[in-house]
C-alpha cells in the first residue's frame, strides 16, 4: 500500500507524519491509562505487556522463520526460575533478567539443533517433548524449583511512592516498548531478512548465502531469549513460582496468541497477547463457559480473517487512508 521510495525510508520505523501523531497519542493514552482506571485494569494491562514480549519472540520464530514450536512453556519456566533464584541470591534485577534471557536462549540453541533436520509437526513434537522434560525436571528436583512450597520471588519496592500495581504497569510497559522496538529492528536487519528468506524457501536462501544452520539457531536463541525475559518478568509480577504454572497449556496460549494476532506482524503480536489475556478475563463470570467463549471467538476471527487480528487492522488502515475512495 505504501510506495517506498528509498532504502532509508524502508528502514524508517514510522513512515507517515500522521502515523507519528497517532502513535504518540496512543503512547500518551497508555501512560495515562492506569491513572484513570481501577486497579485491575492496570493489573491486566501489565500482564498483557508481559505476554507481549513472549508472543513477539515466538512470532519471530513461528511467523518470520517458519519453525513450529510447542516448547514455549519450557523456556518460560527456565527464564522464570533462573530469575527467581538469582534474585533470591541478591543479584540485582537487571542482571538477573538478562541472565534469565541468556540461559533460556542457550537452551533455545540446544532445542534448535533438531530443527536443522526436522520440519513441521516433527519439529513440533521435539519442542513439545522439551517442554515436558523441563516441567518434569523442575517438578522432580526441588533445589531447582525452590522446594515443595514453590519459589517466592522477592518483589521490587516501587520507587517514588507508586502503588504496587501502578509500578508494575509502568515497569512492564517499559519492557514491552523496548522489545517492540527491538523486534522492529531485528526484522529490518540482515538477521530478520534471513529469517524471512528461510521461511519462504530455505533452499533458495541457502543458495543466496544465508547460512541455514546459523540463522535457524539464532532464531531459536532469540525467541527463547524473549521467552526467558517474559519468564523473569512473570516471576517478578506474581512473586511466586511453581512448576505447575508452566504446563503445555501455557505453550498453547502463546501459540494461539501468535496465530490470532497474525503471523509475521509485530502489531499482530501485541493484539494477540491482548486477546489471550482479555477474553478469559472479561468473561470470567461465565464459569464453565469460559473456554467455549474463547473457542468461539478464535474460530470467528480465523474464519473471517485468516490473517488474524493484524489482517483486520491492516485492512482498516487501508480503508481510512483511501477514504472516501474505495
Amino acid at each position: 500500500m505504501d510506495l517506498v521510495k528509498s532504502y532509508r525510508q524502508e528502514l524508517q520505523l514510522i513512515r507517515k507524519p500522521w502515523t507519528r501523531v497517532w502513535v504518540a497519542f496512543l503512547l500518551l493514552m497508555l501512560l495515562a491509562l492506569p491513572l484513570v482506571t481501577p486497579e485491575y485494569v492496570a493489573h491486566t494491562a501489565a500482564l498483557i505487556f508481559i505476554y507481549m514480549i513472549g508472543v513477539l519472540g515466538q512470532n519471530l520464530l513461528i511467523g518470520y522463520t517458519g519453525q513450529i514450536s510447542f516448547g514455549q512453556a519450557g523456556f518460560l519456566a527456565i527464564g522464570a526460575f533462573t530469575f527467581g533464584h538469582l534474585s533470591r541470591m541478591g543479584v540485582p534485577w537487571p542482571l538477573g533478567l538478562l541472565c534469565a534471557g541468556i540461559v533460556s536462549g542457550i537452551f533455545g540453541v540446544l532445542v534448535g539443533f533438531p530443527s536443522l533436520r526436522l520440519k513441521g509437526p516433527y519439529l513440533a513434537i521435539v519442542t513439545l517433548g522439551f517442554g515436558i522434560a523441563v516441567y518434569q525436571v523442575f517438578v522432580n528436583y526441588e533445589w531447582l524449583s525452590g522446594g515443595r512450597m514453590g519459589l517466592i520471588v522477592p518483589r521490587l519496592t516501587p520507587p517514588f511512592g507508586l502503588s504496587e500495581t501502578l509500578f508494575n504497569y509502568y515497569f512492564n510497559f517499559l519492557f514491552a516498548i523496548l522489545f517492540t522496538l527491538l523486534t522492529y529492528n531485528i526484522i529490518s536487519s540482515y538477521m530478520g531478512r534471513a529469517f524471512i528468506a528461510i521461511r519462504d524457501n530455505d533452499i533458495a536462501a541457502e543458495a543466496m548465502g544465508v547460512s541455514l544452520t546459523r540463522y535457524k539457531l539464532i532464531s531459536f536463541a532469540v525467541s527463547s531469549f524473549y521467552m526467558g525475559i517474559m519468564g523473569g518478568l512473570y516471576g517478578l509480577f506474581l512473586g511466586y513460582l511453581e512448576p505447575n504454572m508452566f504446563t503445555f497449556a501455557e505453550s498453547i496460549t502463546i501459540f494461539v496468541a501468535v496465530i490470532i494476532g497474525g503471523l509475521a506482524a509485530v502489531e499482530g503480536s501485541i493484539m494477540g497477547a491482548a486477546f489471550v489475556i482479555l477474553v478469559p478475563q472479561v468473561f470470567s463470570s461465565y464459569k464453565e463457559m469460559v473456554p467455549a467463549i474463547f473457542g468461539v471467538t478464535i474460530i470467528l476471527i480465523l474464519i473471517f480473517e485468516p490473517m488474524g487480528l493484524y489482517g483486520r487492522w491492516f485492512k482498516m488502515r487501508l480503508y481510512f487512508r483511501n477514504w472516501p475512495y474505495r
Binding site: 481501577p38 493489573h43 512450597m149 512473570y234 504454572m245 470470567s284 463470570s285
Partner: peptide
C-alpha cells in the same frame, strides 16, 4: 472462573476489590 491460573485469579480478586465485602474460598497453592 480462574482456570487454576494464578495471574487470572489475582486479576479476578483485584477486579472485585471495590465491589465485594469479603472474599471466600480461594483454592490452590499457586
Amino acid at each position: 472462573d480462574d482456570g487454576y491460573n494464578p495471574a487470572r485469579a489475582l486479576a479476578n480478586l483485584k477486579g472485585m476489590k471495590n465491589d465485594v465485602f469479603a472474599y471466600g474460598c480461594v483454592i490452590g497453592s499457586a
